[in-house]
Design a binder for these strands. Structure first.
Lengths: 146, 146
DNA sequence: GGATAATATCATATTAACATGATAATAGTC
DNA sequence: GACTATTATCATGTTAATATGATATTATCC
């Protein structure tokens, strides 16, 4: 559903949302999420450029959320890494597909799209941390070990 | 949403569904859909192996649907080309994510998944040709021309 | 102001999806 | 049975996503 990159971004944002005021190093995030560090670094940098994260260089640097988790919809985190997200594309790949010039699947598919869009627009980071509180930090195995 | 390959498959199936008893050549399909012929050939062959299409070799050969369009849900056409489709994956990429061991997004995302799954399972090819009848064959431009 | 710890960026490798072109296999037509 | 139109398959090319490693830049600490 999400690209690998968008999934990393979302998981990192979720991690940061648990302690919104703390600045976390990329190394810590990468380890906690079992995600390649240099790759994550670039991904987080991209989120910083969109204004969702604040990056600090130098000693004691790292990333943190720029706003409270309840004000950040998933949409904003995922959007930079998906060409689609809000104005989702035509199921049959037509360049233009609207209510006026619909493809064969338009009407039925529209409902599905709207459900998906609503999820990303109306779910905030905070909504997900609360859900997470039910299970305290599921164990993550390191990338290569027994 | 769909991979390019799955989209080709769906469009081809839709085309065949308009005249379910006629056998159409790959060349005709490829031209009608503006899709690379050799690639489509392999894709259709794959659908034939799953039993959705019947392929005939030699002169007067081609492809046709193996069953009436109203008995073929979109799911069956798309499934061979998407690793996901029915048991859609965890939004956060966890290898296991169920009602018992949910990820942070599980409950909210589940609704979205179910809407999508219902669409693919409950919409048949016939449902889409009827919708299409509203617009008679939208013009498709050839791949390279003025 | 040098040492250090962090992000930022560049160069490159890996992989899978997508695509093309050429050839082999098959079956109908004459 | 030769010819031809078709699917089937093989070999290869192209592109974008994903990933890794090395280096540059920045800021803090002493």
């Amino acid at each position: 559903m999400l690209s690998q990159t968008a999934e990393y971004a979302l998981r990192a944002a979720l991690y940061l949302a648990e302690e919104p005021d703390r600045t976390a190093r990329v190394g810590e995030l990468a380890e906690a999420l079992s995600v390649p560090q240099n790759y994550l670094s670039k991904t987080l940098h991209q989120l910083a450029r969109t204004g969702i994260l604040v990056s600090t260089r130098g000693k004691h640097g790292g990333f943190r959320l720029s706003r409270p988790p309840e004000t950040i919809p998933l949409f904003e985190i995922v959007a930079p890494f998906e060409r689609i997200t809000d104005q989702r594309q035509c199921l049959l790949g037509r360049p233009v597909c609207s209510d006026i010039t619909p493809c064969a699947a338009h009407d039925r598919w529209k409902t599905v799209k709207e459900t998906t869009n609503a999820f990303f627009r109306e779910t905030s980071l905070k909504d997900l941390i609360h859900a997470n509180a039910r299970k305290p930090a599921p164990p993550r195995r390191p990338r290569a070990s027994a």
